[in-house]
Design a protein around this nucleic acid. Structure first.
Length: 476
DNA sequence: ATGTCC
């Protein structure tokens, strides 16, 4: 991205002054090198979002932003329903409520070194991964609706997990306002046999070792120490979320003229929050959020079953579960007034600072855990929300490394087998049904997650707490 | 991301 098109406000804050149809400025967070490396399309998309009705304060892009469908991935935008504010299917993304959850294990490296091959094989055998992967669970019509409206609370009620898990999930595992009647039969059909499955692409399940602690107080509150082994699960709402996204993009684009909305780009399809279509999307999107939280909850149960057989002394308490493709109704202070707005976070993690009631009591005085997934061969990070986050980005931060190379480019450059062998030489075990999938996800196809995290930390979007490195990775 | 093109 050309820096001359931006006005630099600080080391890590870059503004686009409103021109033409833009109702608010654009704000891009990032260090100089990340800004220079960003696609010009991010600039264009930030401006497009700034032109949507009812947008508040600014159209934001996080340091890991890249070109997405309509909205940039790494985009954050809030809309006021009382000012004609809209909700956009492309502003949430196709993989609705894709997110990361991290479990403690109560183990250290020495506990798993001897059995890591066995663990890798057992996790791969018990947690279905890959395109179209099917789980052991099949939902009938009534159970599907109960899942869509109950989320992780539904899963725990059916025996997949522990009731104490729920306090460590955003929304305590159940998104209010989900309405299964807003979800099409086709979306439900696609999801019927996909509960408890990882899916493909950048989704994974990893055993990780805490290699660095940057903030002793926050790490203490989160229960993380150097040398600890943790388990992270990265996945979303599978076929259901994708189907909902596809259907509503189409209907929102078709209904835009009727709603008096002129779209600068068809991909920005949206509907007024107060319209019938907007409300239907909210009911469906929240159902997909519940689906994703239930999915990660069931996978958690499968992980516990696997450890029970291979390494029964593991404790597997849930640290936290965050989503990074959402739209949520939240209270924010805008121009000195508290307003209820709908915050789109597409490839952006909620990053609430200390004191907010939605944060589990155990870390309410610290800020919420912000779980940032890296790539297979590199590292992931745990951060926490700060006092400044609300004012900077409606309480949002980065979500991961972000691609720097297309899937196609990646498969030309790498072979899956070679990537697996190279990582094995470094002590990282990969298990995947797809060689091509591994090539597409080669570490080199992504930006350096450490630079992205450093930029988020510098910008005040979140504070670095700990770094983890992968040991075993089950890939989709 | 995705029954990787209804």
């Amino acid at each position: 991205m050309q820096k001359k098109r931006l006005k630099r406000k600080s080391e890590t804050e870059w503004w686009i002054e409103p021109t033409g149809p833009m109702r608010v400025p654009g704000v891009i967070y990032g260090t100089e090198d990340l800004i220079e490396g960003m696609d010009d399309k991010v600039h264009e998309q930030v401006c497009n979002v700034a032109a949507l009705p009812g947008i508040q304060k600014a159209s934001y892009a996080m340091p890991d932003a890249h070109w997405g469908y309509g909205f940039p991935i790494g985009g954050v935008a809030a809309f006021d329903p009382n000012e004609g504010g809209v909700i956009s299917a492309g502003g949430v993304g196709f993989d609705i409520s894709c997110g990361v959850r991290t479990l403690h294990s109560g183990l250290v490296r020495d506990d798993i070194e001897r059995v890591k091959e066995t663990l890798a094989d057992a996790l791969y055998a018990n947690i279905p991964a890959g395109v179209g992967s099917r789980g052991a669970i099949s939902l009938n019509h009534d159970e599907m609706d109960a899942m869509l409206e109950g989320g992780a609370q539904w899963a725990v009620g059916r025996g997949w997990g522990r009731s104490e898990d729920l306090k460590s999930i955003e929304e305590e595992g159940c998104m209010e306002g989900a309405d299964a009647k807003c979800v099409s039969p086709q979306a439900k059909k696609r999801q019927k046999d996909e509960m408890g499955t990882l899916g493909s692409g950048n989704h994974y399940l990893e055993l990780q070792e805490v290699t660095d602690v940057y903030d002793a107080e926050a790490a203490g509150a989160f229960g993380l120490r150097e040398g600890d082994i943790v388990i992270s699960i990265h996945c979303g709402s599978r076929g259901l979320g994708h189907q909902i996204g596809t259907e509503f993009l189409k209907s929102m684009a078709m209904a835009a003229p009727k709603h008096g909305i002129k779209l600068p780009d068809r991909e920005l399809a949206c509907a007024p929050i107060k319209s019938e279509l907007g409300q239907q999307y909210l009911g469906a999107m929240r159902s997909a959020m519940n689906c994703a939280m239930a999915n990660r909850q069931i996978i958690t149960h499968l992980v516990r079953e696997t450890f029970e057989r291979v390494l029964p002394k593991a404790e597997l308490d849930l640290l936290y579960d965050v989503s990074h493709n959402t739209c949520k109704m939240e209270q924010h202070v805008i121009d000195g007034k508290t307003k209820t707005v709908f915050v789109h976070r597409k490839g952006a993690t909620r990053s609430f600072g200390p004191g907010l009631p939605d944060i589990p009591e155990a870390f309410r005085s610290i800020g919420q855990p912000v779980l940032i997934g890296g790539t297979m061969g590199t590292a992931s990070y745990v951060l926490c929300g700060t006092d400044r986050t609300m004012g900077l980005s409606f309480g949002s931060a980065v979500h991961g490394a972000g691609r720097q190379m297309s899937r196609r480019q990646a498969t030309k450059k790498w072979k899956g087998r070679a990537v697996i062998d190279e990582l094995a030489n470094r002590g990282i075990l990969i298990r995947s049904p797809s060689q091509r999938g591994v090539a597409e996800e080669a570490p080199g196809a992504y930006k350096d997650v450490s630079r992205v995290v450093e930029a988020a930390h510098q910008a005040g979007l979140a504070r670095k707490v700990a770094r983890v490195e992968p040991i075993v990775c089950v890939k989709g």
